[in-house]
Design a protein around this nucleic acid. Structure first.
Lengths: 96, 96
DNA sequence: TTACATTTGACACCTATTGACAAATCAAAC
DNA sequence: GTTTGATTTGTCAATAGGTGTCAAATGTAA
């Protein structure tokens, strides 16, 4: 699952920015942002926040996708993925 | 968050089993199962399955708690935790 | 071709996880 | 109150995973 990668590629292309330019802004290698957009690697939380500024979208929009990707990575193809998600949600509610 | 640890401690105590006995069954050090029950460490997926057999409960019951703990670890105290969970759930539904 | 953008693969470095082991603490029985 | 066994704590080793670089390969358009 790579919702964030697809999203940031779409945004970058809509702004006609090069990987090189985004990489420079994030101060990472161009190869890395390429891998990130294709889902081979993940951004750090701080990089997501930086990108939100750069692309002028809300942190919430990108961080929500970033978290969702991480969660889906965690439960991969587990047959009890949905039960685990529901249980986590129930517990999280009690913590808020 | 340590739902599984609390659950397996409760089950173990209800059966009057010693940490030593559970550790022997799982073929790990007693200190490790102690830490696991108190949430300092995590079981591997295979160990959860073994424990379900040993304790005669369903794999689903323990694996759901195990996944939930992992998910809650992943999102920690993120302000967008709930949004991320909801997005992950939405995406997971489309995959089933 | 040439020039530039992107992708791929290999590797280094750092952090997190899983485990063992030894020592410390706790709890009951004696 | 000492002894015995259970549990916990702290430290270290081995391994796995994540983040990054670099060089080479591939794609693309003039």
């Amino acid at each position: 699952m790579n919702s964030l990668g697809e999203k940031i590629r779409t945004i970058r292309e809509s702004k006609s920015l090069l990987l090189r330019q985004v990489a420079a802004y994030l101060e990472i290698d161009t190869a890395l942002i390429s891998k990130i957009e294709r889902g081979e690697r993940r951004l750090t939380r701080e990089q997501v926040i930086k990108l939100a500024k750069f692309y002028n979208v809300t942190e919430e929009e990108l961080l929500t996708l970033w978290l969702s990707d991480k969660l889906l990575d965690t439960i991969e193809n587990d047959p009890f993925a949905m039960q685990g998600l529901n249980k986590a949600k129930t517990i999280l509610k009690t913590l808020l």
